[in-house]
């Protein structure tokens, strides 16, 4: 996925843990981990809004486009 979620860097800058962010945003740690590790396929506007609100940032700071290989077919993810 050429879209990267820069959650790691922003969390470090804000000195906030993933657990704390999960509590504030109302998203499970498991789902935030999926987002952080770049395994997520999509992000809801409501999640993005909550993340931006709690991290005091713009969506553009959270997401970045890094040219890479085309998106893998979802079926390949099944293993």
């Amino acid at each position: 996925m050429p879209i990267r979620v820069r959650l790691d860097r922003i969390l470090l800058e804000r000195r906030m843990s993933l657990t704390e962010l999960a509590d504030r945003v109302g998203v499970t740690i498991a789902n935030l981990s999926i987002l952080k590790t770049g395994k997520a396929r999509a992000i809801r506007f409501s999640t993005l809004e909550a993340l931006c609100r709690e991290l005091d940032c713009q969506p553009g700071e959270l997401l970045a486009f890094e040219p890479g290989p085309p998106d893998d077919d979802l079926e390949d993810d099944e293993g």
Binding site: I34, K39, A40, R41, A42, I43, L74, E75
Partner: peptide, 15 residues
């Protein structure tokens, strides 16, 4: 069902 499974997987990975 294959398409349904793909949509399900996509929904699962939508945060």
């Amino acid at each position: 069902f294959r398409e349904g499974a793909r949509l399900r997987r996509e929904a699962e990975l939508t945060i």
